[in-house]
Amino acid sequence: MQVKNKDNFSSYNPILNFFFFVCAIGLGMFFMHPAFLVCSFVLSLLYYVTIEGLKGFKFFVLMVPLILLLALINPLFNTAGTHILFIYFGRAYTLEGLLYGVAIAFMFVSILNWFASYNAVMTSDKFIYIFGKFLPSISLVLTMILRLVPNFQRKASQIGTARMCIGKAGENTEKKEKIENGMTVLSGLATWALEGGIITADSMRSRGYGSGKRTNFAIYRFDSRDLVLLIVMIGLVAGICVCGFMGGAAVIYTPVLEITFNIYTIIGSVMYFCLLAIPSVINIMEEIIWRILRSRI
């Protein structure tokens, strides 16, 4: 059984959702320091599991070979390093190179994890809500495309079926015929779509599109809890940036491994941990509150 948990971070204003993912992915690609990498990896996985349940674990299991592959292949391309593990075809396979490979692999998988959560949380309408404010026409086009795509898919299969039933297509035909047939379906779909579009354009103008200033309606609200969380997140991001700028996350893998460890590393990585933990903590807290409420009944 696949357990899909409700994501409570999603119920915050989309601006916060989007801001969080931009920060998590952007900073995640930036920091190569082991402490930061561990934070990003662990928390990205945790969050994905709180959203998707078992599916999140499966996703991780699928990632393991990728991690190994990336980690093992990278040293092949870089022979720099002081600790040589073995030599192949006269090239050195170094420990530093391997460690760097591991770091890159973890970074890459964390990014994929964050994207996986992004795809679950940031539904198309949230994305459009965010960009609707400063790109109103583009975001309108996006909503229109999202309406059309399922329509076109349905129509494409109808045209395919219709052609099959007059002996013009089929599964058991040759490749050449299949291609020609697919092309005819695509061409028929294009006509149908473009002709129908004239009515859509009429319907838009009939409902006042282009008659003056346009506003953007959204069903999302920006509450005080959103404001509080946003301030916290901005504060943490600023703090992390400062620590990074002061060299708290500096690390050199090759040719000699040099990992910085100072006060900025500690402050920076703690703040980084707090930032990335926000959605998971919200989800876990909410779960606990509900358990308590339910147990009182």
């Binding site: 309408d125 309108l140 229109m144 309406r147 006042g208 200033k213 069903i219």
Partner: peptide
Amino acid sequence: NPDNQIVTDKVWHELAFGLESLGMDQ
């Protein structure tokens, strides 16, 4: 045609489409 008249992808957005065009506030 019921399909072609619809502009947006969500029911709530479609209800609001005309009002947005008229520039009404939130």
